[in-house]
Simulated scan of single mutants.
Amino acid sequence: MRSAAFILLVCLLSVHVKGLVISSRGRCHCMDAGVKFIPPKQIEKIEVYSPSQSCPHMEIIATLKENGEQKCLNPESKFAKNFIKNAQKQKRSLG
């Protein structure tokens, strides 16, 4: 019975930390693929990190307005792809 309770606790904790940012130097910031969508009104800023020697994955980290929490966005999600596309258009029109 204790092992079932432990497994349930581990599952609940793993669901809670999905999409959270971890800070470690020389490694990827995101623990997993990240969330697929964050309402744009909740986003204060977005940082995009290209693949590098220390992290082979593109990472998109959104900082939330309400509490400053950082969440990883899944770069393969439709929301993230549209965001990158729109940011590139804006950059071209300004430069």
Rank of each mutant, 00 (worst) to 15 (best):
Q42R: 14
Q42N: 12
Q42S: 13
Q42K: 14
I43V: 13
I43C: 08
E44W: 12
E44N: 13
E44G: 03
K45C: 01
K45S: 05
I46N: 05
I46V: 08
I46P: 02
E47N: 08
E47M: 07
V48N: 01
V48D: 03
V48L: 09
V48M: 07
V48E: 08
Y49G: 00
Y49F: 06
Y49N: 00
S50Y: 02
P51R: 02
P51F: 01
P51A: 02
P51G: 01
S52E: 04
S52A: 11
S52M: 07
S52K: 07
Q53E: 04
Q53S: 04
Q53W: 02
S54L: 06
S54Q: 09
C55W: 00
C55K: 00
C55A: 07
H57M: 03
H57T: 01
H57K: 07
M58Y: 00
M58V: 04
M58P: 03
M58G: 00
E59S: 07
E59R: 06
I60H: 02
I60C: 02
I60F: 01
I60E: 00
I61Q: 02
A62E: 03
A62G: 05
A62V: 03
A62H: 03
T63K: 14
L64E: 09
L64T: 14
L64H: 10
K65C: 06
K65H: 11
E66H: 11
E66W: 12
E66S: 13
N67M: 10
N67Q: 10
N67W: 10
G68P: 08
G68R: 08
G68A: 14
G68H: 10
E69D: 11
Q70W: 04
Q70T: 03
K71Y: 13
K71D: 09
K71A: 15
C72T: 06
C72V: 06
C72K: 04
C72A: 09
C72F: 09
L73P: 01
L73I: 02
L73T: 00
L73E: 00
N74M: 13
N74P: 14
N74S: 13
P75V: 13
P75M: 13
E76D: 12
S77A: 15
K78E: 15
K78D: 15
K78P: 12
K78T: 15
F79S: 12
F79I: 09
F79H: 12
A80K: 04
K81V: 12
N82F: 09
N82V: 05
N82I: 05
N82W: 10
N82R: 10
N82D: 13
N82H: 10
N82L: 08
F83C: 08
F83D: 10
F83K: 09
I84N: 01
I84V: 14
I84C: 02
K85T: 14
N86Y: 11
N86G: 09
N86P: 07
A87G: 13
A87C: 14
A87K: 15
Q88I: 14
Q88M: 08
K89F: 06
K89A: 06
Q90L: 11
Q90A: 15
Q90R: 12
K91C: 04
S93A: 14
S93D: 15
S93F: 14
